[in-house]
Simulated assay, not measured.
Amino acid sequence: MRHETWRDMTAVASSEPVAGDAAIISASIDEPEHFAALYGRYANQLYRYAYRRVGPEHAEDVVADTFVAAFRRRDSYDTARTDARPWLFGIATKEIARWHRAEAARYRAFARSGAAPADDGMADAVADAVSARAAGPALTEALASLAPGDRDVLLLAAWGELTYEQIAGTLEIKIGTVRSRLHRARRILRARLRSQGWAEQGRTERGRTEES
């Protein structure tokens, strides 16, 4: 059933007219096929987020389960929220929690291999312009060490590209809590990277860039 729903959404998403997220969800209450437009709009973003966190083995399941859960809850959506992306990312984050062991194992594997599930933008956001390629093992090991709540806030900001206000709504926490968790997560990552010499390298590379 889950994968049938996934395929059905894929088939009709491209044919849906352009409309606001809240309008789409409202229309889908009586005409469920309208909900497919949200899939066409946000599935790729959610897949990239899930892929980075739990890998290709589970990412499609996370996205499929996210849209199934969202569809079932659509009648309770607050239509005053014109952007459904934070709502969908919130559901996806809860789905990812079911795969927390897979996520931790993924980060450990990256740390051992020297690869990194992060790009330069991620490094900029969480490690003060450290090169993600160079700091990959240290960065992924540090991500695995974070408390789940801190990691959720950090990755929703870095990979989901959500604002503090959106993260607060997504996780149903206060903005002050978002700020404190993000600050703590960044502090832990910087400390881990600094202990392995990467923070200093990042500053050196940045200085060379500024000089040139």
Rank of each mutant, 00 (worst) to 15 (best):
H34A: 13
M9V: 00
L88W: 06
P117C: 06
H34Q: 11
G136V: 10
S180G: 02
R52K: 15
E200Q: 14
F67D: 05
A11P: 00
A84R: 09
G207N: 12
D150P: 02
A59M: 06
V54A: 07
G149F: 11
I175D: 10
E31W: 01
R73H: 10
Y42H: 14
R73D: 14
D83F: 05
G207A: 14
D21G: 01
P32E: 11
V12P: 00
F35M: 05
R108Y: 09
A115P: 02
K174F: 10
V126P: 01
R112D: 09
S195T: 07
R206W: 06
A123S: 15
E31L: 04
I24H: 02
P137Q: 06
S212Y: 05
V63M: 06
R2C: 02
S180N: 14
F89I: 04
Y164K: 09
D119R: 12
L146Q: 09
P148V: 13
E16Q: 15
M9H: 08
K94I: 01
E60P: 01
R206S: 05
R181F: 08
Q166K: 06
L38C: 08
R74P: 04
A23D: 14
A50N: 02
R179C: 00
W159Q: 12
S76G: 03
A105W: 01
S14A: 14
L182W: 09
A43D: 10
R73F: 02
G90H: 07
A142C: 05
D152N: 13
S14V: 09
D152R: 13
W87V: 11
G149M: 12
E4L: 07
D8P: 01
K94Y: 02
Q201V: 15
T93D: 11
A185S: 14
R192Y: 01
E161M: 13
L189S: 06
D150K: 15
G160Q: 10
L182M: 12
E95G: 01
S26K: 13
G55Y: 02
F71V: 01
K94F: 02
A132W: 08
R52G: 10
R108A: 15
R2A: 04
G160R: 07
A104L: 13
L46T: 00
T170Y: 00
P117S: 11
R208C: 00
A168F: 08
W99E: 10
K94A: 12
A142V: 08
D8F: 04
A138D: 05
A84L: 11
V178H: 07
I24W: 04
L155R: 09
F35N: 04
H3P: 00
R190S: 05
R2Y: 05
L156H: 11
R72K: 10
E103T: 10
R108W: 05
E210D: 04
A138M: 03
L46D: 02
A13G: 00
E33H: 10
T5F: 12
H3D: 09
P17D: 11
G197D: 07
A132V: 10
G40M: 05
R108H: 13
R194H: 08
W198R: 12
R206G: 03
R133K: 11
I167A: 11
G197Y: 09
L193E: 02
A142H: 07
A70E: 07
A116L: 05
V62S: 06
M122F: 15
W87D: 09
V18G: 00
R133D: 08
S131E: 09
S15A: 11
A129Y: 14
A115G: 13
Q201I: 15
S145G: 15
R151H: 12
V130G: 01
I175Q: 13
